[in-house]
């Protein structure tokens, strides 16, 4: 487990940069917003599969709305 990508939905505008960078994890929904391909990632916590950490970091930096945050692996919630 390598942590997750937290999406702040109140900021996300569906610009699509993260879905390009993390194309194997994310796709765009009917309205352009990022959605997990595997159907997980409830409440905007998208688990980052191993090997995608760098792209996830890049997505956080490049998100034009500053809507993304990297979260360390959750202990338990």
């Amino acid at each position: 487990m390598t942590g997750s990508l937290h999406i702040d939905w109140t900021r996300c505008d569906g610009r699509g940069l993260c879905t390009e960078l993390l194309a194997t994890l994310l796709t765009r929904d009917d309205w352009g917003y990022p959605i997990s391909r595997r159907g997980d990632g409830i409440r905007g916590e998208v688990p980052i599969a191993p090997g995608h950490e760098e792209a996830a970091r890049e997505a956080v930096i490049l998100c034009p709305k500053l809507a993304l945050t990297l979260r360390p692996p959750a202990k338990s919630s």
Partner: peptide, 12 residues
């Protein structure tokens, strides 16, 4: 109307 999926999805 802050979060896209809610804003568009509930309407749909």
């Amino acid at each position: 109307r802050q979060c896209g999926p809610c804003m568009f999805g509930l309407r749909a």
